[in-house]
Computed example of a mutant assay.
Amino acid sequence: MNSNEYVLKDNDFIVSKTDPKGYITYCNRIFVEAAGWSRFELIGANHNIIRHPHMPKIAFKILWDLIQSKKEFFGFVKNLRKNGGFYWVFAYITPDLDLNGNIVGYTSFRKKPNTEGVRQIEPIYKELLEAEKRGGIAESYELLKKLLSANDENVIEKYHKLVFDLQKGI
C-alpha cells in the first residue's frame, strides 16, 4: 500500500447522488471519510472535486456517454482525496429517472476494488493518459479500442467485460 493511499474496508459502501450536471446532492459517511472533505464541502460541489489526475479522460467520457443515454456505468476509478492522497473504487453509476423517463440526477455506488484488478488496470490507464497527452481524447479512444480488440459498436461491451473480469479476479 502506498502511504498516500486510503484503502476502503471490505464492507465499505460509498454512496453519492448528484443533480443532472454532476453537483453532489447527497453523500454518505463513508464517502466523506474516504474523500477527506467535510459533508458541507462536498454537498453542492461538482463530483469532479475527487477526480484524480491519473484517471484518463476517456474513462469519464465513456461514463457520461452511458449515463446520459440512460445506461449504467461500471469501472475502476482512482479518486483524489482532499489531502492529495488517493483511493481506488469499483464504481457503479446509474441515472435517476422521473416518472416520465427524464434524467433528474445520478446515483453512484462504490466499493473496494479487487487489488489485482487495480494492479492490472493502472498500466492501461497510464497508456491511455499518454495517448491523451499526444493526441487528446480521440487518440486515447483509439488506443482503448485497440487494447480491447474492439470497434465503435462494441467498445463499451468489451470495456465492461474487462472491468467485470478484473473485479472478479479473472
Rank of each mutant, 00 (worst) to 15 (best):
A131S: 12
P95T: 00
G85I: 03
V89A: 13
E127M: 15
V118R: 00
L129N: 13
K9F: 14
Q167Y: 10
G84F: 00
I137P: 06
V118N: 05
S140G: 05
G101H: 00
D152H: 11
S108F: 11
I67F: 02
F60K: 00
E153T: 13
R134W: 05
K168Q: 14
I50W: 00
F31T: 10
F31P: 12
L144C: 01
P95G: 03
K146M: 01
K61P: 11
S16R: 02
T107A: 13
Y87A: 11
N28L: 14
I121R: 04
Y23Q: 11
F74H: 14
F40A: 14
G135C: 06
I121A: 07
T107F: 15
I62D: 02
T115Y: 12
H52E: 10
V15D: 01
A35N: 11
N102D: 10
K78R: 08
E122F: 04
V89S: 12
V104L: 03
E132C: 08
E142A: 07
Y125W: 10
P113R: 01
V89F: 08
L143D: 02
Y159D: 10
Q167A: 01
I62H: 06
F164V: 12
S140A: 09
T94Y: 02
Y92R: 12
L42T: 12
K61F: 15
N11V: 15
F74A: 07
D65Y: 05
F60G: 01
N46I: 08
Y125R: 10
L63Q: 03
D165Q: 12
Y125V: 10
W88K: 08
G136I: 07
A131K: 07
I50N: 09
N100E: 06
D19K: 04
V7C: 13
L129V: 14
M55S: 04
K133H: 08
G105V: 10
M55H: 04
H52W: 01
R29K: 15
E139R: 03
S16H: 03
V77A: 08
S140P: 07
A131N: 07
H160A: 09
D152I: 06
G75L: 06
T18R: 03
F73A: 04
C27W: 04
A138P: 09
K168C: 07
R110K: 15
Y23P: 09
L97E: 02
I14M: 13
K57H: 10
D152R: 09
I43E: 11
Y106L: 05
L143G: 05
G101E: 00
E33F: 11
V155D: 06
E132P: 00
